[in-house]
């Protein structure tokens, strides 16, 4: 298997972290992984994105110019990145913050009310985990939900670890509703 994943949203939505969690979980299940974040000035309050590759084989190029699955967490990201999803690929979009459906018809799209589901789990901050849960359901090859829940302890920084109960619920919530 080979999946080129792309995560996009605004700074503070946990975009980079979501990509890192996927890597750690997939790595634990024996996959090759790579993670390239956007960085620098654009991350300070602007848009944030990261490219993740999960593969059975050694990864040549870590770049993901045409993702097989793409998560967009806000409207500017949808407008900017829906076009890069490969034909037949998957686009997960955060319906809580995006009032406009994707215009692509040659890809699979899934609307997720990420913020609402996260609120129900305990905090809107876990919206990234909801999207991640949904991704794992649609792309089960990447990693198992258990593996992802299993790496939360190491992936999340110490000062945010008290949110991991909420993160777990949000992941499961997203998974169940996808």
């Amino acid at each position: 298997m080979y999946e080129g994943l792309f995560f996009a949203g605004f700074g503070g939505q946990g975009i980079i972290l979501a990509g890192k969690i996927v890597c750690l979980a997939a790595m634990g299940e024996g996959k090759h992984v790579s993670h390239i974040p956007s960085y620098g000035a654009e991350m300070r309050g602007g848009t944030a994105n990261c490219s993740v590759v999960v593969s059975d084989d050694e990864i040549a190029s870590p770049l993901v110019p045409r993702p097989s699955a793409c998560i967009v967490m806000n409207k500017p990201s949808l407008l900017k990145f829906q076009s890069i999803v490969q034909v037949g690929g998957l686009l997960l979009w955060n319906e809580s913050l995006i009032d406009l459906a994707p215009s692509r018809t040659d890809i699979e799209t899934l609307a997720v009310k990420a913020n609402e589901i996260a609120e129900a789990a305990g905090s809107y901050k876990a919206a990234n985990m909801v999207m991640l849960g949904a991704l794992l359901k649609r792309k089960p090859d990447i990693a198992s939900l258990e593996a992802v829940i299993g790496v939360l302890g190491v992936a999340v920084s110490v000062r945010h670890r008290e949110l991991n109960d909420i993160n777990r619920k949000a992941l499961t919530g997203g998974y169940e509703r996808a």
């Binding site: 890597c23 090759h32 790579s34 993670h35 960085y39 870590p62 770049l63």
Partner: peptide, 10 residues
């Protein structure tokens, strides 16, 4: 380069 410096890999 910036990509390799920023990239995470096992």
């Amino acid at each position: 380069d910036g990509f390799i410096g920023q990239m995470s890999e096992p």
